[in-house]
Nucleic acid binder design. Structure first.
Lengths: 339, 339
DNA sequence: CTGAAAGCGCTTACAG
DNA sequence: CTGAAAGCGCTTACAG
């Protein structure tokens, strides 16, 4: 943990140097309006001269406040999540909060450890993207906390938390309807953990779109899996193996990241994306515009989710009583490279 | 900042509940070996029952230690930096540190504010990607700190800090030599801030490669700029406008992110990437494999930089005296889609 | 505005 | 192992 540090200039020393009391100096760092401009300037000058750094940690300990927020997401290397993080971070910064970031990589053990670490560091609240799968114990643990928790992206089963997310069912219907309207009849669904709300909701939309168009849904074309590029590559290979004599004409991917893997896997097998098979994604990450052909996808407005989640958490911190809020953002179909 | 919180279970209460002294309880949370197994179990049981959460902040204040590290990078939405962050974070986690993340977006004002915030939160050290441009005041400020600072990716001019980076000159030579060997004679250089060490070093490599092959270097083909997709798009447009009757045959981009923008800009102008003009990048971000044609680039091993930086910082925290270390990682040419 | 006192939750140091 | 005391750097509350 490193050796003890010394030599921090204290408020006491500043006060002495400026010839005022510690109380006055304390009022000044906290921007109290009761202090005359003259003494304020004098004290600020002393701070500058001595190189004073406000000890927010000590202040928070004494006043039982917190200026840090725990942010627990799945994978910062996924631009969906880095955008989400930026949204959260920018909003928190405005209010003077600092974020403690942790990534779970969708592992329960990491999530548990991160929550503990955040609590030990006295965060004033937590914004969490829960890991996929049964979150019963996690939900119970979070309910007991005496700090507010806002969930984003995924909900926790059978629990009642503040939540900001996207209407995944609606988003999936939008894009599947689009595919069907283009003439596709056999559509695969690749990626996502069946235990997570984000998968079941997409599945619901997938089914609804099929039913709405009175189309048969082929369960053998559904390939759940992890939500990253590698999983996409593997799923594409598996799909090709299982259905080589009767390939689907379109593939709906759980996320753009999965779609990139699928595209890579298909390409390696010599399949022409956009001609032999159409691939679509979900999230509208910046890279979806760069791949060739550009990816048709659904925007899930990661950044906006972040902003809303941060605001919701702030409201909850200052206003602890009320009923939980659920903010559901409406997704938007992003059609690319249509001729 | 939120209202005061109450009801935190203290070590005192745990001690009372378990029938031991506060000192004993304190020794137990710190894993002292002098405590008998029986009392340890008894106390741990009490902690569990009462829902005790160790207050690391209070402990750190008293013992004048820190378990947090400030991490200041440029832009987490750039996968180069998110990879760097993951490398840092995983390494710090092993040693029980928590990271405070801030992003500067290459702005001096943000950087200054972030450093202040980190100090106020009593970080035990800082890992910093300095913003481009004159860093004289920043360097002086950092030198005065009584906590260790490790720079990564970019160095600060005329200063002596611990540093982990890549041999950008060598990387640039590798890829420019490759282009020249393929027959290219007019090569543009797009992106990067001329005030930053990362640009001057690439420029050095760019020049050396030309000189080595006894080739004329055309300064009018050098387009410095920001390091993101949008800047790449704009630079590509500018390049096309200025050199429409005599286009370069290849474009070396400051980073993959810039390359993606350039590719987009050229494509919009109807230029066939890989045929009319060859585009190459720097960093080898995951997406470089997905674009079509796949991007030839130079791997700068972001994750490894992160790991090394975190390790270097830890060494510095425990071993404050020694001379500064400079760790330069050798880049690797990644050739893609060669027929 | 000052000044003295108490306290946030812990660790430290020490006599027993 | 215990127990009492002091202190990390701040804020709080209050009498003056």
């Amino acid at each position: 943990m490193g050796p003890p540090k010394k030599n921090r200039v204290t408020l006491q020393e500043v006060a002495k140097h400026a010839g005022v009391s510690r109380s006055t100096a304390s009022l000044i760092v906290r921007n109290s309006p009761t202090i005359s401009e003259a003494t304020r300037k004098k004290v600020l000058a002393s701070m500058n001269e001595l190189g004073y750094v406000y000890d927010r940690v000590a202040a928070n300990l004494r006043s039982q406040r917190s200026t840090t927020i725990g942010i627990i997401i799945t994978d910062i290397a996924n631009t969906f999540y880095s955008d989400l993080f930026i949204g959260i971070h920018e909003e928190l910064e405005k209010e003077g909060y600092t974020g403690l970031l942790g990534t779970t990589f969708d592992l329960h053990s990491k999530q548990d450890r991160l929550i503990s670490t955040m609590l030990e560091h006295r965060v004033g609240g937590i914004i969490l993207v829960p890991v996929s799968g049964n979150g019963q114990e996690t939900a119970e643990r979070l309910q007991k906390l005496d700090i507010p928790v806002v969930l984003t992206v995924r909900e926790l089963p059978e629990s009642d938390f503040d939540y900001v997310g996207v209407d995944y069912s609606e988003g999936t219907q939008l894009i599947i309807n689009h595919l069907i309207d283009k003439g596709h009849r056999r559509i695969a669904f690749i990626g996502g953990r069946v235990e997570s709300s984000t998968w079941t909701e997409r599945m619901k939309g997938f089914r609804l779109a099929h039913e709405g168009k009175e189309l048969h849904m082929d369960d053998s074309l559904v390939f759940p899996g992890a939500i990253n590029k590698q999983a996409g590559i593997e799923a594409a290979e598996e799909l090709l193996k299982q259905h080589q004599d009767h390939l689907p004409t379109a593939i709906f991917c759980f996320s753009d990241l999965v779609a990139f893997g699928v595209i890579l896997g298909l390409r390696r097998a010599g399949i022409a994306i956009g001609k032999d098979i159409e691939v679509v994604g979900f999230d509208n990450v910046p890279e979806s515009e760069i791949v060739q052909p550009p990816l048709t996808t659904v925007s899930s407005f990661a950044r906006q989710i972040g902003t809303e989640a941060a605001n919701l958490l702030q409201r909850r911190i200052t206003n602890t009583g009320k009923k939980t809020e659920k903010i559901i953002i409406q997704p938007e179909l992003i059609i690319r490279d249509e001729k």
